[in-house]
């Protein structure tokens, strides 16, 4: 899952080296905290949050199939 998020996000930003994803595993929900360069945050979120929402749809679909739940948090 982390690899999926990384693959997408790194292809969208200007500074892929600043991308940092931390996995916080919980009982039922895994949280993925995403950090990016300040100037790239907007690119990860997208217009009206469209990019972020598309990434979340992908994450939800993959984790639902594994019977899990995952949440993406974009840390500013």
């Amino acid at each position: 899952m982390k690899e999926l998020i990384e693959f997408i996000v790194k292809a969208l930003v200007d500074d892929p080296s600043a991308i940092e994803i931390t996995e916080v595993a919980g009982d039922k929900i895994t949280i993925y905290e995403l950090r990016a360069a300040k100037s790239d945050i907007g690119k990860v979120i997208g217009k009206r949050g469209r990019t972020a929402s598309a990434i979340r749809t992908l994450i939800n679909a993959v984790s639902a199939r594994q019977g899990k739940r995952a949440v993406l948090e974009i840390i500013e």
Binding site: A11, L12, A54, T57, R65
Partner: peptide
């Protein structure tokens, strides 16, 4: 069925992400 998703939500998301990635590249 998985790739398409409910009301083509996943397919459209894949399409949107692929669009963004391609435009960036």
């Amino acid at each position: 069925g998985f790739i398409i998703g409910k009301e083509a939500k996943l397919l459209n998301s894949i399409q949107y992400i692929l669009n963004q990635m391609t435009n960036k590249q």
